[in-house]
């Protein structure tokens, strides 16, 4: 087993055909997909509200954050996982859920290409190779309101 520095470790996720990596220190919990209640008038990437640990939790569509088509259906128990993660850089930290199809593993990645803040809400920061997979590296702290 290779010891990995915390700064280099990512949680690899799959949303549809896309793979992405979240910095491990931004991830609070991986749970089986939470029940999402749709919120009328919400943006497409906001699937709705869920309850996690007795608290209301907004859940975002990871695929749409990556620029992919929506892979999760709101209002229903879907197969997959919900990644509870800290989003933005506010204090106290704000918690949100990311709906993904699968949480693959925790792996140390070396970013092969930095893209700057791109993608919806500017959270895509680069790309990396996980084995033979190309993964998109997200930085949830880069959340922008736009």
């Amino acid at each position: 087993m290779t010891e990995m520095a915390d700064a280099e470790r990512y949680l690899l996720l799959r949303a549809g055909d896309a793979f992405c990596a979240l910095p491990l220190q931004q991830v609070r919990r991986v749970v089986r997909a939470l029940t999402i209640h749709a919120l009328p008038g919400a943006a497409p990437e906001l699937l709705g509200l869920a309850e996690f640990a007795g608290e209301p939790l907004p859940v975002l569509d990871l695929g749409m954050l990556l620029g992919e088509a929506s892979s999760a259906a709101a209002g229903s128990q879907v197969a997959g996982v919900t990644v509870v993660a800290r989003i933005g850089d506010s204090e106290p930290p704000e918690i949100a859920g990311l709906a993904a199809d699968e949480a693959l593993e925790i792996s140390a990645l070396e970013m092969t290409r930095g893209t700057g803040a791109s993608g919806r809400h500017g959270m895509v920061v680069g790309e990396a190779l996980a084995g033979e997979r190309h993964v998109t590296v997200l930085d949830l702290a880069a959340w922008k309101a736009a």
């Binding site: 087993m1 010891e3 915390d6 470790r9 949680l11 491990l24 220190q25 991830v27 609070r28 919990r29 991986v30 749970v31 089986r32 996982v81 949480a103 593993e105 925790i106």
Partner: peptide
């Protein structure tokens, strides 16, 4: 998922969680 969360917790524990992270990886 449990192993992932264990790894996440181990990561949050810093150095004290490294060995636990290894176990979590084995469990995963």
């Amino acid at each position: 998922i449990l192993s992932l969360n264990a790894a996440i917790e181990a990561a949050a524990a810093g150095d004290r969680g490294r060995r636990f992270a290894v176990v979590a990886e084995e469990v995963r």
